[in-house]
Design a protein around this nucleic acid. Structure first.
Lengths: 202, 202
DNA sequence: TCCTAAAACAGACAAATGTCTGGTATACTA
DNA sequence: TAGTATACCAGACATTTGTCTGTTTTAGGA
């Protein structure tokens, strides 16, 4: 076979491998070989190893389908359960009523996280719109000024936490909504909002 | 070895495999074996095959690392490249300057998507704050009213697209920012914003 | 022109991995 | 109580896949 211009085939191979890796299906050396019509495995392998040398690919030597995308400081991906509704009872019981799972990059255990869909416009000025999905880290307390999910009168609500002497206040981020001053025994902090997601279109 | 309660180990194996698949690293039969301390490969394999029979996993028989997540309804998770900065040249060249990858649920090819970090407060009223991460579907055009990423004077900007006769307008969602009226030859639409993400805390 | 490096090929070996056959022990149930 | 299904182990074989050595061809520069 005649040779192709320098670097051109390598670029196409990188694109091919990258697509496969992003789709979660690492290719084998021979799959690359076939995809590009090479008559020898080594032709594909030489390109792949060159890409590793260039730092554009990473690999686990000896392992089948061992090529990876070089991770520049990325945390692992976990699946976070999205709660359909938050019941009055324990948060653990809510696991029964799932809306599905969403991928999330975190070093934390997935059991310490949950997702929740936002209702109402009370957090508009904080850039949290109705229908947004918030990802929450479970914790029974939080610092003043942080955005939390609290259970008030059997309903989960997203608000800004303000701590006073013996009680807490739940502030909206929208002047048209009232500040909640719940009885200390009537409120429970479920966790702290650590991420906001909004889908604009499929 | 004593046996464990019915179905319990299987559930944990399913979780393990799913995590690995979502992280883009399909496990081998023996990796599952080691992860659960089985003394025989077949122990792991029996569970995996059972999960396939139950329809909870899919597989490509004979292939190394051939287990997959069955794709029914729910879209698969892909890793979307986050661009560090958007250069004047082609979008493809920007692949060189990556900020990492983020998991994203989509049926679309990962090559059609990219992530970008938002600068400035021009989209405040649309709930898009500085530092937010937008996920963008590559397309050279979009409908009027949609939020797009456009390249104006060698700089990527997130704005609301408005189409006029022979030109386009880029509207901010913040009255304190000006409407951009770029020369048709000086502007290029890179894609449409399909999701907004904001990290509040680690 | 000669030299060097890149690109590709040929053929093989070795390791990783998928698959299979047969066996033991325990729980549940008819 | 016998039967059946599940969970697990032991050992082997076959395929897939990674890796290696050596050769040929061509582009581009000294």
């Amino acid at each position: 076979m005649g040779r192709t211009p320098a670097g051109e085939t390598r670029e196409r191979i990188f694109g091919f491998v990258r697509e496969r890796l992003l789709a979660g299906q690492p290719p084998t050396t021979r799959e690359v070989q076939r995809a590009f019509g090479f008559k020898a495995v080594q032709s594909a392998r030489a390109h792949l190893e060159a890409l590793v040398d260039e730092g554009r690919l990473a690999k686990e030597p000896g392992k089948a389908r061992g090529y990876r995308l070089p991770r520049r400081g990325g945390a692992p991906t976990v699946l976070v359960p999205v709660l359909g509704r938050v019941p009055a009872g324990s948060l653990e019981a809510a696991v029964e009523d799932l809306d599905g799972y969403i991928p999330f990059q975190s070093r934390r255990s997935p059991g310490k996280l949950f997702g929740l869909r936002v209702k109402g416009e009370s957090m508009l000025d904080a850039g949290i719109l109705p229908g947004d999905l918030v990802i929450v880290r479970k914790q029974a307390d939080a610092d003043s000024g942080q955005i939390v999910v609290a259970l008030v009168e059997d309903e989960a609500t997203v608000k800004i936490l303000r701590k006073r002497r013996n009680r807490i206040e739940l502030h909206p981020a929208n002047p048209r909504y009232p500040i909640l001053l719940p009885d200390p025994h009537e409120v429970r902090i479920l966790g702290k909002v650590i991420e906001v997601r909004r889908t604009l279109d499929v």
